[in-house]
Structures are given as C-alpha cells and as structure tokens.
C-alpha cells in the first residue's frame, strides 16, 4: 500500500500553459540605409572576439619570437648548431614529400611519425585495456589494493628503458619489445588514477545507490563510472604523455621505422637540422595528443 499518489492532470495543465504564449507582432523596422557591418550587433561581437583573440595571442607570440632569436644567437656563435633559417629550409624540403618509401631504411618523415604513433597507440591501448579494470578493482577492494601496493611502488619508479632487455628477451623481436616498454611504463598512471578515483567516490552517491537499492551493474554505469571518469581521463592523459616520451628512446635502441630511430639515423648522417626538426615534431605531436585528450576529457566531464 502506498501513501503517495500523484495528480497526473497537473502535467496536462502545464503542457497547456506552455501553449498559450502568444508572440506580439513584431513592429516593422523603419527603412533606412543599411548599417555598416562593424556597427551591427554581430559586427561588434566579431570585433570584440577578434580583439580578445589578439590579446591572447600576443604573449605566446612574443615568447616564441624571443625563443627563435635566442636560438639564432646561440647558433651564430657555435659551429655545429644550425640556426632557425637553415632548419626551416630543411623542414620545407623534408615535408615536401613526407610519404616516400625507398625501403625500410629510407622512408619519408610521415611514415616515421605514423610508425611511432602506431607503437604508442598499441602499447597505450593495451595499458588502458589492462589498467582501467585493474584500477577499478584496486579502488573497490581494499584487500586487492593492499596486495598490489608494494608491487606498484616497486615497479613504478623503474626507468622505462630498463624494461627493454626483458622485452627483447621475452619477445625476441624489436617491435613487440618496444610496444611492451610503452605498455609497462604507461600503465601505472592509469591504474593509480583510476583506483584513486574509485576510492574517492563521494559517500553521498553510494548512499543514493543504497537507498535506491541499485544493482551492481547500475551502480557501475550510473555512479562509479561517471564519478571516476575525470580521474580516469587524467590518468590517460599522463599515461599517453609518458608513452610518447618513451617511444623516442625505445626506438633509438631498437631501430626500425619511427621518429626515434630517424633521429638516431640523422645523427649518424650528421644532419643536425633534421634532429632539430625531429625535436619539434616530437613536441608538436605530444602537444596535439595531450590537447586531443583534454578536449575528450572536457566532453566527458559533467560539470
């Protein structure tokens, strides 16, 4: 027996009320010469927007200009380091044909970047595949967390490259070994952040789950997962940052096609312009990866 009953007719009243709004006929604007664009409301908004953009762009612009100037000065006083201008010329030549393929030791810069991204993608993807469920388990069950804590504390500070010999020994081949290095070094931020997120789900939300008597599945999809998502995204962002840091070093050691190997190859050719370009590429790609994930994280965050 229920003590609460509803008056559903109320719903109808509201619906009707919404329909009764009448819009007064708009008065025709007096005819005159058209206003110039920058005096209309849209034009003003456009101007204000452009002004804001300009103001936001000035400090980074000055910073970059100073950086290039400093680079130029340092390069002028050293005999090996190329300045900004020759590096720019070399970059133009390099990016004129990024996807040529003259055998495995001579491929375009585009191929090298894509190969590196592929390894990072696979290694990081596996890390997410294992790390996210592991993080949820460690966050939900204190016993498991206690079991894993010493192992994680021990393995986390290990330099990623120290894993490479193990990878080479286990897999015998360079490709899976470098993916393994990416995996093992990028899994920790995912596990730790996810676990921390699960442990920090506000008790209020869990009380709601208990009062509503939600099923475990509903608790996971409606409460745990959305609540943990921001932490999870932080973990993923840190982890992909680590993965991209590690790939250059790993490829230098394993060879093949990839941006890290390419740097080493250009060093052997004493092509310092290309090494500088590679540094920029690594920086820019890392930035793009991070920004993309920030964007995704923002899309998923609820507040």
């Amino acid at each position: 027996m229920s003590a609460v009953t509803f008056h559903e007719d109320r719903l109808d009243t509201v619906m009707k009320r919404a329909d009764t709004h009448t819009i007064p006929p708009a008065e025709a604007p007096p005819r005159s010469r058209p206003t110039p664009f920058f005096e209309t409301e849209r034009g003003r908004a456009w101007l204000a927007g452009a002004g804001g953009l300009l103001r936001a762009a000035v400090p980074p612009g000055i910073g970059l200009a100073l950086f290039v100037l400093l680079w130029h000065l340092v390069a002028a006083s050293s005999d090996g380091l190329p300045g900004p201008a020759p590096t720019w010329e070399a970059a133009k030549a390099l990016f004129a044909d990024p996807f040529y393929d003259n055998g495995p030791n001579d491929m375009g810069i585009g191929w090298n970047i894509l190969h590196s991204l592929y390894r990072v993608g696979v290694g990081f993807g596996l890390a997410a595949l294992v790390g996210i469920p592991a993080g949820f388990l460690l966050g939900r069950f204190a016993f498991l967390s206690g079991m894993a804590a010493p192992i994680i504390s021990l393995l986390r500070p290990v330099s990623p490259l120290a894993w490479l010999p193990i990878g080479l020994m286990v897999f015998q081949v360079a490709e899976p070994a470098s993916i393994f290095v990416i995996f093992i070094s990028s899994i920790w931020p995912i596990i730790l952040n996810t676990a921390a997120g699960v442990a920090r789900v506000p008790q209020d939300y869990m009380n709601v789950a208990r009062v509503l008597n939600l099923s475990e599945w509903k608790i996971f999809t409606r409460i745990l997962f959305p609540s943990v998502l921001p932490h999870l995204m932080t973990g993923i962002r840190l982890s992909i940052g680590v993965a991209w840091l590690v790939i250059v070093a790993a490829e230098m050691l394993t060879g093949g096609v990839g941006i890290g190997f390419w740097v080493w190859d250009e060093w052997n050719n004493l092509n310092v312009e290309h090494i500088l370009i590679a540094i920029f590429i690594v920086g820019i790609v890392g930035l793009l990866l991070e920004q993309t994930l920030m964007w995704v994280a923002k899309r998923f965050s609820y507040a």
Binding site: D204, Y205, N213, R222, P226
Partner: peptide, 24 residues
C-alpha cells in the same frame, strides 16, 4: 507496515541534507 526493516529499500524514500543528486 508489519515488516522488519533490514537494509535500505525504495519503500523508504530518503531526502538527504545535501541533496545528493548525481551531477552527471
């Protein structure tokens, strides 16, 4: 209603002090 209360259940609706709405 002549049944023992054991654990939370939807036949007792709770309104929490801090609303406890799920923000997502």
């Amino acid at each position: 209603a002549e049944k023992e209360i054991k654990g939370p259940g939807p036949e007792r609706g709770v309104v929490f002090q801090n609303h406890s709405l799920l923000p997502w």
